[in-house]
Amino acid sequence: MSRSSDFDSLVPAVPFSRRSFMVSALGAGFALSVQPVAAQSVISTDSVDLNAGEIKIPAAGGEMPAYRAQPAQGNQWPVILVVQEIFGVHEHIRDICRRLAKLGYLAIAPELYARQGDPRQYSNVQELLDKVVSKVPDAQVMADLDACVAWAKAHDGNVGRLGITGFCWGGRIVWLYAAHNPHLKAGVAWYGRVVGPSSELTTKQPIDIAARLYAPVLGLYGGADQGIPLDSLEQMRKALVMAANPPSKASTIHVYEQAPHAFHADYRPSYRKSEAEDGWRRLQAWFKQNGV
């Protein structure tokens, strides 16, 4: 598949309401719905030698808050989009951006629910899912991620070396974005579902677009994940193997047999240190071997 070098037309017109933003700034700490945080295991990455903090991304309907981290020196850094869990851009997601910046990347984590509501105000996970997460259209998410790429291009990011990673809700988005943006080089999806029902807002699942990826995706999953059955991962593997195009065939799924869902989330009881560290090493190798 050809990859145009013209990024100026990257943001397409999309079929969702140009509603204004309900959330205009990022909050501190963690979402209420993940309290109490397992403080003893939280990884904290400093901002020494980094430029890190909140930015505003021009997007449909106004300005979208996002967290950005990049090296303090240099320019033309490769770009990695970081896609949140269902809990929004809280401290764990911001820390991941700083970890990536320490590796030499410009990392951007947009608050992708900002038009639908503030995930910080919900103490109940089901209420958060019902009132905010379920109302976020995939088309909106794709366009907002494109807007982040446009921002990175205008602020000294090398969007010719573009990657994406995401967790849980964001893991599913990684697969979708790999079939959306022809300029993407690689993606790493952490325990994002690959099969599920479709709706007016979520018209496709990763299994539906597996054969049409523009970039190879590394999927990292837990064998003890109660929400993502192993047979669904086998379905996805088969779809990738049977694909005709090279990016899909180059994609792979790695399963940590004893790991639960959210094994990389160091602020939660689900955290598994050895699997999380191994997955992080795999992420780095995957991006490097695919030109990010």
Results as ranks from 00 to 15, higher is better:
Val79Arg: 03
Val79Ala: 06
Val79Asp: 02
Val79Met: 06
Val79Thr: 09
Ile80Leu: 15
Ile80Phe: 13
Val82Phe: 09
Val82Cys: 08
Gln84Ala: 12
Gln84Ile: 06
Gln84Cys: 10
Glu85Leu: 12
Glu85Met: 14
Ile86Asn: 08
Ile86Trp: 07
Ile86Lys: 02
Ile86Arg: 06
Ile86Thr: 12
Ile86Ser: 11
Phe87Gly: 01
Phe87Tyr: 15
Phe87Ile: 05
Phe87Asn: 13
Gly88Tyr: 05
Gly88Phe: 07
Gly88Ala: 13
Val89His: 03
Val89Glu: 06
Val89Cys: 05
Val89Tyr: 04
Val89Pro: 03
His90Leu: 00
Glu91Ala: 15
His92Cys: 01
His92Val: 03
His92Asn: 13
Ile93Ala: 06
Ile93Trp: 03
Ile93Asp: 04
Ile93Gln: 05
Arg94Thr: 14
Arg94Tyr: 10
Asp95Gln: 13
Asp95Pro: 01
Asp95Glu: 13
Asp95Gly: 04
Asp95Arg: 01
Ile96Leu: 15
Ile96His: 12
Ile96Phe: 09
Ile96Asp: 07
Ile96Arg: 15
Cys97Gln: 01
Cys97Ala: 08
Cys97Leu: 02
Cys97Ser: 01
Cys97Glu: 00
Cys97Lys: 00
Arg98Gly: 04
Arg98Ala: 03
Arg98Lys: 15
Arg98Ile: 05
Arg98His: 03
Arg98Trp: 02
Arg99Cys: 08
Leu100Lys: 06
Leu100Phe: 11
Leu100Val: 05
Leu100Asp: 02
Leu100Trp: 05
Leu100Ala: 07
Leu100Thr: 02
Ala101Gln: 09
Ala101Glu: 07
Ala101Asn: 11
Ala101Tyr: 07
Ala101Trp: 06
Ala101Thr: 09
Lys102Glu: 12
Lys102Val: 10
Leu103Ile: 00
Leu103Lys: 14
Gly104Tyr: 10
Gly104Val: 12
Gly104Asn: 13
Tyr105Met: 11
Tyr105Asp: 09
Tyr105Cys: 10
Tyr105Val: 10
Tyr105Gln: 09
Tyr105Glu: 09
Tyr105Trp: 13
Leu106Trp: 00
Leu106Ser: 01
Ala107Arg: 00
Ala107Gly: 04
Ala107Asp: 02
Ala107Ser: 06
Ala107Trp: 00
Ala107Val: 03
Ala107Pro: 03
Ala107Ile: 02
Ile108Ser: 07
Ile108Tyr: 08
Ile108Val: 15
Ile108Gln: 07
Ala109Ser: 11
Ala109Gly: 10
Ala109Asn: 07
Ala109Arg: 04
Pro110Thr: 12
Pro110Lys: 12
Pro110Gln: 12
Pro110Ile: 11
Pro110Val: 11
Glu111Gln: 15
Glu111Trp: 05
Glu111Phe: 13
Leu112Pro: 01
Leu112Gln: 03
Leu112His: 01
Leu112Asn: 01
Leu112Met: 13
Leu112Asp: 01
Tyr113Lys: 00
Ala114Gly: 02
